[in-house]
Simulated assay, not measured.
Amino acid sequence: MPRQVDHDRRRHQIAEAVWRLAARGGLEDVTLRQVATEAGVSARLLQYYFGTRDELLLGALEILNDDAEQRARERLAMLGDAPGMHAVVRGVLLELLPLDAERRNRHLVYAAYFVRFLADPALAKVARAAPPALENLVAGLIAQGQGLGQVSRDVDAEAEAAFLVAGADGIQATVLLGQRTPEEAVALIDHQLARVFTVTVRS
């Protein structure tokens, strides 16, 4: 068991090196040797854990997603035992915004991956094949809100979820560029959620 824990730690160490390189200068020209140097490991060890360059990039992205999900769960847990669907959806969407150093760094890395996916057809194919998990999650939460009388039955849960997630993604870029403050970004999210979540249900 301790050996497995050590393997996980080493994989995370290498993934963090990929993230730092991505945040500093993108992923277009990053090599296995550069990642190995950044991580403080040999190129042979890096290949042992991840294989090819593409497998390394995808593996590091998977670890980043796992870390992001864990942090999101921790923040959502802070909402309490029965926060209501409005608060839960808000918490999910705020994870898409660079509201602190941790989330800002994460979204800078995601931006580097986005550019890489656009330039590499093989990696883009993997990205396109990924299910729209976040949209499905938000749609499910909105549907639960409808069942609890917090959202009108007239609301199209799937369409609203797609709009909210896409909107948060777009707002994310404006915050990273300094066009909006984090506070302004949160206010925009709250404005849209106030439109969706209401106790007024049409008869």
Rank of each mutant, 00 (worst) to 15 (best):
V5K: 09
E28M: 09
F50S: 08
A122V: 15
I171A: 11
D54L: 15
R53L: 14
L193W: 11
H12E: 14
Q179K: 15
D169R: 15
V5M: 07
V18G: 03
V18N: 02
V88K: 00
E183V: 08
V199R: 11
F114H: 13
T198V: 11
A143Q: 15
G170A: 08
G149Q: 07
L118V: 07
S203F: 15
D100N: 09
E102F: 12
K125Y: 13
R90P: 00
L93G: 02
V5H: 09
R116Q: 03
I142C: 00
H191M: 10
D169V: 14
A161M: 06
W19T: 01
D156M: 06
E74K: 01
A166D: 15
A168H: 14
G140Q: 11
V199A: 09
V186Y: 04
H7M: 09
L188P: 04
N65H: 09
A127F: 13
L61R: 08
A72K: 05
A68Q: 08
I142R: 00
D169P: 07
L27H: 01
G145F: 03
A36P: 03
A162E: 14
V199H: 12
P131Y: 07
L76P: 00
T200R: 12
Q144T: 15
V109W: 04
R75F: 00
A166T: 15
G91Y: 00
L123Y: 07
Y49D: 13
V138D: 01
R11S: 10
M85P: 11
Q172G: 12
Q172P: 10
D8L: 14
G170L: 06
L93Y: 06
V126G: 03
D154A: 13
A36Q: 05
Y113K: 01
L56R: 01
A139S: 12
V92H: 02
G147F: 05
R73N: 04
R104K: 11
Q34Y: 01
R195M: 13
E183Q: 10
A43C: 05
V175N: 05
A17I: 01
L176T: 02
Y110C: 05
E158V: 15
